[in-house]
Nucleic acid binder design. Structure first.
Length: 434
RNA sequence: GCCGGGGUAGGGUAGGCGGUCAUCCUACGGGACUGUGGAUCCUGUGACUCGGGUUCAAAUCUCGGCCCCGGCCCCA
């Protein structure tokens, strides 16, 4: 074999493509059901768009290149930044809130493993200009709804409000570098490491044992809405946390009104980056190996970061490939009905053109039809029809044609009938739909 | 970037202490077979991931690359 696929990429064949398309349709329906409209942005953007959002370090994790005009470009590693750019370019004066969704592939230069590829697909949305708990609740509700519709029953929603921890940092006057360092540790979700970093022998923050103590207790808070009371008790002395806490509580209340019950509050969800301002959430599905996170989202001020006015948006991105993994893991590969139901073939050379005619007539009547294109000998016709799993085979032969008839064979019952050539469509339609 | 396991016809595989024409299934082509054997039988095409090394001799041992699978790191 001369050429191989580039590393970390995949070819999707007929069956898999149909399954992906099926899932894609479900997601589109859900998103549109909530009033979101689809947009599409370019596969590549200015490199700067992504480095501004995520820092210079990401350059070695993405596909970037110079074009012939010496522009620094990059294949998009995610679609949130392009959406913010699109908003700035086209939608600033549109009435809020704006509801956008997208589906497309992204590219990252990373080591492939289960659920991680160099070209992968994201399905996501942005709700721009509705910074209310109900905006956030609707986003989470839609996400939950979408995952349910796909038949994934084991998804686990983890929600946090970063305002609480940010409030603590503000109260204790912690600089951004240190904040970031702490957030990274929290994000890892490693209890031992966290303990070591906060209350161990050599903590990241040295002179604030009170803060360390509070942080450590806070990170342990995972559970249903009842933990709000515990959080309140813990952070009551720190005024800077109160507004966020109220928002968080309001979100929880609103979630229930949006009929979402399937979630955990988890103060350990960090999603490191600075531009997240409010709630953040992640969705996990166990059994997907190391890459079990199928969705990440939150509320952020990305537009401001790109130089626009401060418009808050809430959004999430579903890892489409991981969702497909989850579906297969849970339900196996779904059996898909063959699309083509009818096979038309001439038995003799002289009737070939009549066979084409019949095939076209069937197709125009919306009966998916295949017609013999390889001049198969008779004995191969039925073998082929059987293999492509059609329900009916129309045999066009000289003898029958003399009486204006063709033979229609029911492949399942193996019975066959002579049918007037003008009645073939009706005959098959009748059998297919009745 | 790091660690482990892999790579044999289109797909799935056997062989693996070096040594006959590299096994079997399936798929594909042809035939037995001119309108009813969707079967069966016969037959054909088709592969040792690439490169170096050891050796009289390498699919087999060895080193390196590439790719796949899983994990670490990272995860916007």
């Amino acid at each position: 074999m001369e050429f191989e696929r580039p590393r970390g990429t995949r070819d999707f064949l007929f069956e898999e493509m149909r399954q992906r398309k099926y899932a894609e349709d479900i997601l589109r329906n859900v998103f549109e059901n909530y009033g979101f409209g689809e947009v599409q942005t370019p596969l590549f953007e200015d490199l700067k768009l992504f480095t501004t959002k995520s820092g210079e370090e990401i350059v070695d994790q993405l596909y970037n290149f110079k074009d012939k005009g010496d522009r620094d470009l990059a294949l998009r590693p995610e679609i949130t930044a392009p959406i913010a750019r699109l908003y700035l370019n086209e939608l600033q004066k549109t009435s809020k809130p704006i509801k956008i969704y997208y589906y497309g592939s992204c590219f990252r230069y990373e080591r492939p493993q289960k659920g991680r590829f160099r070209q992968f697909w994201q399905f996501g949305c942005e709700l721009i200009g509705a910074k209310t708990p109900e905006g956030e609740a609707e986003i989470i509700a839609m996400c939950n709804n979408a995952i349910e519709e796909l038949g994934i029953t084991t998804a686990e929603f983890n929600i946090n409000h970063l305002g609480i921890i940010r409030g603590l940092f503000a109260h204790f006057d912690i600089d951004t570098a240190t904040q970031r360092e702490i957030m990274v540790v929290i994000d890892k979700g490693d209890k031992e490491l966290l303990k070591e970093s906060l209350v161990g022998d050599n903590p990241i923050i040295k002179d604030k044992p009170e803060l360390n103590e509070v942080l450590f207790k806070l990170m342990d808070m995972v559970g249903d809405s009842s933990i709000i009371a515990d959080i309140r008790e813990l952070v009551a002395p720190y005024e800077e946390t109160q507004e966020a806490l109220e928002e968080f509580e309001e979100l929880v209340k609103t979630l229930e009104s949006f009929q979402v019950f399937n979630y955990k509050l988890n103060l350990g969800v960090a999603r490191g980056l600075d531009y997240y301002t409010g709630i953040v959430f992640e969705v996990y599905v166990e059994g997907l190996g190391a890459q079990k996170q199928v969705c990440g989202g939150g509320t952020y001020s990305l537009v401001k970061l790109f130089g626009g006015e401060d418009v808050v948006s809430t959004g999430f991105a579903l890892g489409f490939d991981r969702l497909m993994n989850a579906i297969e893991e849970l339900n196996g590969k779904p059996e898909l009905e063959p699309i083509v139901s009818t096979y038309v073939s001439a038995i003799s050379d002289s009737t070939r053109h009549e066979a084409f005619n019949i095939a076209q007539t069937l197709r125009k009547a919306a009966i998916p039809t295949e017609v013999d294109l390889s001049r198969k000998k008779f004995k191969k016709i039925l073998a082929y029809a059987n293999k492509i799993d059609v329900k009916y085979t129309v045999l066009v032969g000289e003898r029958d044609l003399e009486d204006g008839k063709v033979t229609v064979k029911d492949m399942l019952s193996r019975e066959q009938e002579l049918v007037d050539i003008d009645n073939v469509v009706e005959y098959i339609k009748d059998k297919l739909y009745n």
